[in-house]
């Protein structure tokens, strides 16, 4: 009986830890064909990290629609000051530059 309670408590402790680490990173992967041609993987967007430094309105709805897969992001637009490359973001001295491909894209296809 006590053993079960103990194991239960353990589980209760483990689950949130795993969940916390996985949740709130958004996988952006609409343009699979184009990415495969270029040999870069899906994008992992750390939502939590961004929420820490910016208010929601800094991004929603001006830059990104708050909907999973609701934005058709391409590198061409990123280069042209849209989405991730918006002014003051990854096309400026404020954040890492766009040519650090592997900081946004998972490696491989």
């Amino acid at each position: 009986m006590i053993k079960r309670i103990l194991i239960g408590t353990c589980m209760l402790l483990i689950v949130p830890v795993i969940a916390l680490s996985a949740v709130d990173s958004i996988k952006i992967e609409s343009h699979g064909t184009s990415r495969n041609k270029a040999g870069v993987g899906p994008v992992i967007f750390p939502h939590k990290l961004h929420k820490k430094s910016f208010k929601c309105a800094a991004c929603h709805p001006k830059i990104f629609k708050a909907k999973l897969g609701g934005n058709s992001i391409t590198m061409r637009q990123n280069m042209n000051k849209k989405f991730c490359g918006s002014p003051g973001c990854h096309n400026s001295p404020k954040a890492f530059p766009l040519f650090h491909c592997n900081k946004c894209h998972m490696k491989g296809k």
Partner: peptide
């Protein structure tokens, strides 16, 4: 020609 469907 850049690989991919969009980039210039």
């Amino acid at each position: 020609v850049a690989k991919g469907d969009f980039v210039d």
